[in-house]
Design a protein around this nucleic acid. Structure first.
Lengths: 245, 245
DNA sequence: CGTATAAAACGAACAGCGTTCGTCGATCAT
DNA sequence: ATGATCGACGAACGCTGTTCGTTTTATACG
């Protein structure tokens, strides 16, 4: 909902700040900074309050509870996603690029995807991105019902993949090691585990360990995204591309 | 020195109360029962211990920590999934049926999918299911690397969808209402919210609310699964179905 | 049969969590 | 100047996962 900002000519008194000046935006920004720096697990109301040099109770004047704070932070992250003007000729590429962009944004703010997975987007930026996807697909001639479903599935896919990725980051954070070292060590252990499995019960797993292990996160994500988009095209072809609503 | 009589508050021997016999399996079974009955959020080490008429510390003799307990419960749930003997002619249907079966199992034990999403499967049943998928796809002529990726993506998809579904169950549980009533009320609120959005900023969302809202969980899941499988077939056709490893 | 030893069970406690309550102090309209 | 309103905040509640040190039990052995 578009809300009218306070007219700047209204008395800006404020100046004298005897108490610390809290605000919703400041709390959200601080929360996001903490998540980026220390991870979602480290984000507690107490921690945010501490970073703002106050007590936890003070936050509740601006934010209903932790869940609302997380949703606000999530929407703040979504603001980084840019949606293009729909081009009917390039709708498929546009969707692919949009989703890849979202993937990269979630990667950058690793842990925040855990929040998105648990939330129906109602913030301005979440709505903006959904509207953008829908506009692109409708412009490209995707049947409305399929487009609506697709938004849902793509959103789930992006968030869930980023979520999975964030778990490794969490573990790495807990281990204290550097990321590259942690990753190779971790996957080395997994590979060793798989290699030690009884061949009679898991012949294919053991035989294909290298195939199971060698793709990195981005490759896996793009593979799945490619499947979903190929599938959509195939689905449209079959159902008829010019279905009326 | 006068003999001090035994202080009456000193231990009274406790009578002969045969200690409860704990075991890993019993703890896991109890944990699963509690999750089904009260939800994952209600599962604490204290709650499990209480159900077994003991203290939380007693559990740690059989289970390393809460995470390990959850993984054991998760694998226990996976034991309900049956994998068929690979039939090269029917590989695609077999995969589809297997994934749908997993979907239904996760639905039945609502909250457990949250654990699966956070875990690389290393339990016997997780491995069994993965081996089964791989066997079916390899028998069907899917290139090994694609099959390996597919296992990963399908697992992520099933868990993430079930996870999302479990969130509604959690909220319903918290609200105290009956499931059907809660669902229709909840989605009614969402629809109302979307309908109230400013049309100038979100024209397509507002115009397509019914398309966005009307599919139920199972339809959405099958839609996405269909996309992934269509995409796989398309991918194989393009890359060549008989690629050597 | 009595006793030593290892394993399991356990009570209590620690540090941390989200959230609420009641109070205090500052700002603003009158 | 004064009363009302609202943000800031200290303290507390009930909960969490986990650990420590101790007690109790079952088993092995002389």
């Amino acid at each position: 909902m578009t809300q009218i900002p306070a007219p700047p000519w209204r008395k800006t008194r404020k100046a004298s700040a005897p108490r610390t000046v809290l605000s919703r935006d400041l709390i959200v920004a601080t929360g996001l900074r903490l998540i980026d720096a220390e991870g979602l697990d480290a984000l507690s109301m107490r921690r945010v309050a501490q970073a703002l040099d106050t007590g936890p109770a003070s936050l509740y004047a601006h934010v209903a509870n932790k869940e609302e704070l997380l949703e606000l932070i999530y929407d703040e992250v979504m603001s980084e996603i840019r949606v293009p003007e729909p081009d009917p000729e390039r709708w498929l590429e546009q969707i692919r690029e949009l989703i890849m962009q979202a993937f990269l944004v979630f990667r950058a703010h690793a842990d925040i995807a855990r929040v998105g997975l648990a939330t129906i987007p109602t913030g301005p930026n979440g709505l903006r991105v959904a509207e953008g996807q829908l506009a692109i697909m409708l412009a490209g001639g995707v049947p409305p019902k399929s487009a609506a479903m697709m938004i849902d599935r793509l959103g789930l896919y992006v968030c869930s993949d980023a979520y999975e990725g964030s778990l490794y980051v969490s573990r790495q954070r807990g281990s204290g090691k550097e990321l590259g070292e942690f990753m190779s060590e971790f996957f080395g252990q997994i590979a060793t585990f798989y290699r030690g499995l009884p061949v009679d019960r898991f012949p294919n797993l053991v035989a294909r360990i290298d195939d199971l292990m060698d793709a990195n996160g981005t490759e896996r994500f793009e593979f799945g995204l490619d499947l979903l988009l190929r599938g959509l095209v195939s689905h449209i072809r079959e159902a008829g591309p010019t279905t009326k609503d």
